[in-house]
Amino acid sequence: MALPETEITLRVNGETVRKRVEPRQHLIDFLREGLDLTGSHVGCEHGVCGACTVRVDGRIVRGCLMLAVQADGRSVETIEGVSDSGELADLQHAFHQRNALQCGFCTPGMLLCAGELLATTPAATREQIREHISGNYCRCTGYQAIVDAIETTLASRRANPAGAGT
């Protein structure tokens, strides 16, 4: 069986990356296996659990429901990138303080998912928070601490818009 490969060029966490990939490789395997960015996790590979949530061109996507070749020419951000930029530092701090994680497997995806809500819906209610993260599976926490941490971060960003992130 022929295994054709295609060359792709994309930006990953601000770095330009050029790689040959099999067309069948989904983005999350490419990030993990091709680039050793193992912070994003493979959870179900059918788009249900959200553990592979990453950002492409500024929007969250399921890394298992996008091929690496589809990310050609695009900008991808992962938990490693947003951690280093400090963009979600306040949210990560709130997660830590509130113990909004146990095993941590869902956490990178959960943070990126929540980050989009922080950016787009500053006045989100608790119900809206729950709705927004309803596609991200966590088996450990029961979700409440996660909702609390996001709510806290929303409130602190509203109180101090300049202080978002770092």
Binding site: T38, S83, Q92, G104
Partner: peptide, 18 residues
């Protein structure tokens, strides 16, 4: 708070597949 949660919050945990 859990000191070891920090690495998990940055995607720097190590699971077998990592």
């Amino acid at each position: 708070p859990r000191p070891n949660a920090r690495r998990l919050l940055q995607g720097r945990g190590v699971y077998i597949d990592d």
